[in-house]
Design a protein around this nucleic acid. Structure first.
Lengths: 234, 234
DNA sequence: ATTTCCATTTTGTGTAGACTTTAAACTTTT
DNA sequence: AAAAGTTTAAAGTCTACACAAAATGGAAAT
């Protein structure tokens, strides 16, 4: 059969299902008709229904289990998707001019807390890079980063005066796993100085750990300037 | 033809493609073979290749355009997905015992800043609910929330002494749009008192605005206890 | 009453093929 | 050249059907 312009598409099905959930016709926890029945109702194939339902499940509205069927999630486990842009893009999206400055770049023995955090051997060496990201002349982010030399030997030759460690890493090593955290920390004297804040001021802070096939690659702390907020819509 | 146990599945294709990207075989910005050719290479149908590539594009690794083909994204626009659990679930996931306490619940005229934030008419009335969420006896989150009465008339009869406003809203009104922000704020005297912190301490703070088909429903500020961090892995 | 095992149901994924939509690339006209 | 129209390649989506895999619910065995 051919796909006429009156076909029910998987998009239509998604919308209809969502509408039924919102209207209360399909209550939370209730079991939905199976795919075959829905295919009949929407007069399309099961394949099309399957795609619609699969996507709704991916998006966190439904829960599906073989044999058990599909049910409406009671607490719509809606997930916020935060895009993690590169600082440069973030600044430029604000209409600002991105500027980068290296503060320091030293090879050193990994401090104890870092060994614990990344499961490093006691004497492993790391490259410790500190740098600033500006929006024009205004501090935007202060970055404090450690890169595991054993995992990325080329790092000893990298020129972090001309390129930020994040951009360098992205184009140099791939990664397979990331752990990303956000928290509120207080500005210690160096953070305060770099971000031009009073000491003790609240600072929105990100921490990022990156691995490549189980090998720790880098740990970064990112301190954002006053007033920063991370926002998403869905 | 039937699906033997030696079939290449869309998962295999995804893995292979990712591996090729990581190994550098397929450079950023380079154009990939078209679906038909890949189907031949993987000896499967185009349908299967399509699913693999579509998902990789959804996940932010590829960019696809009709006629133009599929290319590797240079800056893998990886998105972090934070699940936004209900406080109760979050506390229970920590192995704690969730306890809830109402602080106050008053109907009032929306303050000016809120009118601006939610695009309310000057004299619209809102229900102002303040409450605490505990992990055992330890403060976990202080919630300061406003609910637009015109959008949710039933709210005037809700008993927020026995159920938290968030749980009540979830089971009462659906929503279509959400804006969620996170920031670091400083504890003012009331936040400090509720969370048992010194005044001025950094507090990880969430703000959530919810709409139903364009109508503003609620604005919530969530102040998290000291040491809170929001984490995700991918 | 409890555990083990099995049939059955429901989703998951694949094949094969066709039509649709988009937009890049080419061609013609102005 | 620049604009407008045309061709065409690639992804997007649907049909129709088949077999696979999981897990539930009940039957059988302990």
């Amino acid at each position: 059969m051919t796909q006429s312009n009156e076909t029910t598409s998987y998009r239509d099905i998604k919308e209809t299902v969502l509408a039924r959930i919102r209207s209360g016709e399909w209550q939370p926890d209730s079991l939905l008709p199976n795919e075959q029945d829905l295919a009949v109702e929407f007069s399309c194939t099961r394949t099309t229904v399957n795609r619609a339902m699969r996507e709704l499940a991916d998006e966190g509205f439904l829960e599906r289990r073989r044999k058990a069927g599909t049910r409406v999630l009671s607490a719509p486990q809606r997930q916020a998707r935060f895009t993690i842009p590169k600082v440069r893009d973030e600044v430029e999206a604000l209409g600002g001019i991105y500027r980068y400055a290296l503060v320091s770049s030293v090879a050193e023995r990994a401090p104890e807390w870092l060994c614990a955090r990344l499961a490093l051997k006691p004497d492993q060496r790391v490259m410790h890079v500190r740098c600033m990201h500006f929006n024009g002349n205004t501090p935007f982010q202060y970055e404090d980063r450690w890169i595991v030399i054993d995992s990325v030997p080329q790092v000893v030759n990298a020129d972090f005066a001309s390129i930020g460690p994040n951009e360098w890493l992205i184009q140099t090593v791939p990664f397979t796993n990331v752990e990303l955290s956000f928290l509120a920390s207080r500005a210690d004297d160096s953070v305060a100085a770099f971000l031009d804040l009073p000491i003790g001021e609240p600072v929105f802070t990100g921490e990022r750990i990156t691995w490549l096939e189980g090998e720790p690659v880098t740990f970064a702390k990112m301190y954002f300037a006053a007033g920063y907020r991370m926002t998403t819509q869905f």
